[in-house]
Design a protein around this nucleic acid. Structure first.
Lengths: 120, 120
DNA sequence: TTGACATTTCAATATTTCGGGAAATATAGT
DNA sequence: ACTATATTTCCCGAAATATTGAAATGTCAA
């Protein structure tokens, strides 16, 4: 991942409202959430929400598809993974001092040979 | 890590200049870098640099100590680790789809039983 | 104390971002 | 075509952020 893309992704997440949206999208999985559902869940006004969703999309952290009258947003898992990899490796050089707090999390999901079916 | 602190850290990193500073600090390790060295290396003006260093410090991503006439900055490894852990676990729920790109990096440094001495 | 160096603080300006109202677009149902 | 629902776009004022020059602070050395 390029530094520029990383800054864009970081900027997109550096906002309490967008971070919350992104969290909900991640939790929702590939099924995603309709913009309206997110608006109701977060209390954001539709125009504000739309703006924030489009910022997340531009950063690659969300994708959208139309389904009837609704537009369904889903988290951009790939881009988020890239961002984390960038921060950990390109930015932080994979230093053990930074990785250490991740060990617990990594033990749950980052092991290369772990089958993917375990989650939720 | 709290969501608020995460947003602060993300905001601090969501700036090309500060991201570069942070990268250099991480590479420099605990020895750190004098503000002037960073200024020379990045071409930033001293007051701009000072401002950005203070933003990184406020977010916990850098610390400073005076050494003679210079002020030495060092990366806040702990806070960066916390941020990554937050993003991976609290924000992303440790989903395998996001963790996957980290597997390669994790294999190098995140394994719980890996001894810490391998770096640099 | 004076002078040079390293960095920060202050004050002003320029730019970007944020959130909101109102209008526009797209879809579905009648 | 008309209406209702869902979402986006446009525009604006307010607030936050970024950058700069100039002045201030802290430190060393003579």
């Amino acid at each position: 991942m390029e530094s520029n893309a990383a800054v864009a992704a970081l900027s997109a997440l550096a906002h309490a409202g967008r971070l919350e949206i992104f969290r909900r999208l991640v939790q929702a999985g590939a099924a995603g959430l309709a913009a309206g559902e997110i608006a109701r869940a977060t209390g954001a006004r539709p125009n504000t929400l739309s703006s924030n969703l489009s910022i997340l999309s531009a950063a690659g952290l969300a994708s959208s598809r139309r389904e009837g009258r609704s537009i369904i947003y889903a988290a951009g898992y790939g881009r988020m993974g890239d961002l984390l990899a960038f921060l950990l490796e390109d930015c932080c050089g994979g230093k053990a001092a930074i990785c250490a707090p991740l060990a617990e999390v990594a033990a749950r999901c980052c092991a290369p040979e772990t089958p993917a079916g375990a989650a939720t």
